[in-house]
Design a protein around this nucleic acid. Structure first.
Length: 223
DNA sequence: GGCCAGGTCAAAG
DNA sequence: CTTTGACATGGC
């Protein structure tokens, strides 16, 4: 394992992580719509559970805006059950599907190729889409240069002493201002941070043997 | 059996 | 404006 040093610069950390772990191939989804649905389903839920839910939706042929928009709630609920919170998530993804189907049909090209500000405005008007889900959609479905902040990002940044910021927008500004505004870089870096966090940053476990920072980091991200 | 996972919303303080 | 509780499954 390489040496992940405290107070390392963002780009330096990104390059070190990439050299160590390689490309993460995010977002694991075949279409933008699948990424949008997955972004909602993965809220506070392990990705392995979401994989099952997505597989069920695919098997039921529900993973297009028009199909999901017409599907009965009971069917959606049953399909996404493994991802947890299935009652509210079923309502939310159906509502999103109805919005997309009505305004764009099944081809989301026109939707995704809007300028960031109008796309962001549209996406954040959806119920069930908060800051992280919104930015995941902007970055991973639409390839806009928006840095996604999640619990892992906060933990890793805090533990590595990169910044003491806690609020979502401040953290986002920190990363975006310390990196080239490149969506592919944002994509890979965020995925690598999650990978690092998953494997070396649970609870009070140190990041690695040579970087024994044990500061307890709160999971909650302030708005 | 308890804790945690690629959060969000509404209601209350 | 900040804090709290509800939402729910599956893996370790």
């Amino acid at each position: 394992m390489r040496f992940f040093c405290l107070h390392m610069h963002s780009l330096e950390l990104c390059e070190t992580l990439y050299a160590e772990f390689g490309p993460q191939h995010w977002w694991p989804g075949e279409t933008p719509f699948e990424i949008i649905v997955g972004a909602v389903l993965t809220q506070n839920t392990a990705w392995s559970n979401v994989e099952n839910a997505i597989a069920n939706l695919k098997r039921a042929r529900l993973l297009t805006p028009t199909k999901l928009a017409r599907a009965p709630l009971s069917k959606i609920r049953a399909a996404i059950k493994p991802s947890g919170y299935y009652n509210q998530k079923a309502l939310r993804i159906k509502k999103i599907a109805q919005y997309l189907a009505k305004n764009y049909g099944d081809d989301l090209t026109r939707f995704l190729s809007q300028p960031v500000c109008s796309l962001r405005h549209e996406v954040e008007s959806w119920k069930g889409v908060g800051p992280e889900t919104r930015d995941s959609i902007l970055l991973y479905a639409a390839q806009k240069p928006v840095f996604v902040i999640d619990a892992y990002t906060v933990r890793v940044a805090g533990r590595m002493g990169m910044t003491d910021k806690r609020a979502y927008r401040e953290l986002q500004a920190f990363f975006e201002s310390s990196l080239p505004k490149n969506p592919r870089l944002f994509n890979e870096f965020h995925a690598l941070l999650v990978h690092l966090g998953k494997n070396y940053c649970r609870k009070t476990k140190p990041l690695c043997a040579s970087c024994p920072v044990k500061t307890r980091c709160r999971r909650r991200i302030r708005r």
